[in-house]
C-alpha cells in the first residue's frame, strides 16, 4: 500500500509570506543612513517580528557576507558577522547548550560586546598586577 511520506506533506510557505522582509531591509537602510549622518546606532530584534518560515534566511541572504566574522565565548558562544553592507551586523547569541537565545541585526561600526568592557579591563589589570607581584619583580615568563 502506498503511504504518504512526511516529505510529501512538507508545507510550502507559498508566495504570500508576511511581507516583512522588504520593510525590514528598508528599516536597515534608514538605520544605516542615520549611522552615517548622526552616528546613531540601531539594534533590531529579529525575534520580535512575525516571520514566515524561510524569511529569516531570506533576510540574511539579502544582507550577504562581509569582511569580518568574530566569535565571543561568554555564557556560551556568540557569533558576530558583518554583512556585505559595512555597518550592518548579524549577531546571534547561543547559550551553553548551543541553543539560540537571541538573533539581532545591529547597525553600528562595531558591536558593543566586541569591545573589551571597562569592568573586565579593570579586573584583567588587577590579575596582571597580582601575577607580576607574585612572580616577584618583573621576571617575564
Amino acid at each position: 500500500m502506498a503511504r504518504t511520506t512526511l516529505a510529501e506533506f512538507a508545507i510550502e510557505v507559498g508566495d504570500a509570506g508576511t511581507h516583512n522582509v522588504q520593510p525590514l531591509l528598508h528599516e536597515i537602510r534608514h538605520a544605516l543612513a542615520q549611522l552615517l549622518e548622526q552616528g546613531k546606532e540601531t539594534v533590531i530584534d529579529l525575534r520580535s517580528i512575525p516571520l514566515a518560515p524561510g524569511e529569516e534566511a531570506a533576510i540574511e541572504q539579502a544582507l550577504g557576507e562581509g569582511e569580518v566574522r568574530a566569535t565571543l565565548s561568554a555564557l556560551g558562544p556568540s557569533d558576530f558577522r558583518e554583512t556585505s553592507y559595512p555597518g550592518v551586523w548579524v549577531v546571534t547569541h547561543y547559550n551553553r547548550d548551543d541553543q539560540i537565545v537571541g538573533k539581532f541585526v545591529e547597525v553600528t561600526s562595531a558591536p558593543a560586546l566586541l569591545r573589551s568592557q571597562t569592568e573586565d579591563i579593570a579586573a584583567g589589570l588587577q590579575r596582571l598586577e597580582a601575577r607580576l607581584t607574585q612572580d616577584g619583580g618583573g621576571r617575564v615568563v
Binding site: 565571543l72 561568554a74 568592557q117 573586565d120
Partner: peptide, 23 residues
C-alpha cells in the same frame, strides 16, 4: 567568574525575552 561581556549578553537575551526593545 562571569565577565561583564557575559553579563551584558545575558541582559541582551533578557531584553529579547521580555519583548523589550534592545535599547
Amino acid at each position: 567568574g562571569i565577565s561583564r561581556r557575559g553579563f551584558l549578553k545575558f541582559c541582551v537575551a533578557t531584553a529579547s525575552l521580555l519583548a523589550l526593545p534592545p535599547g
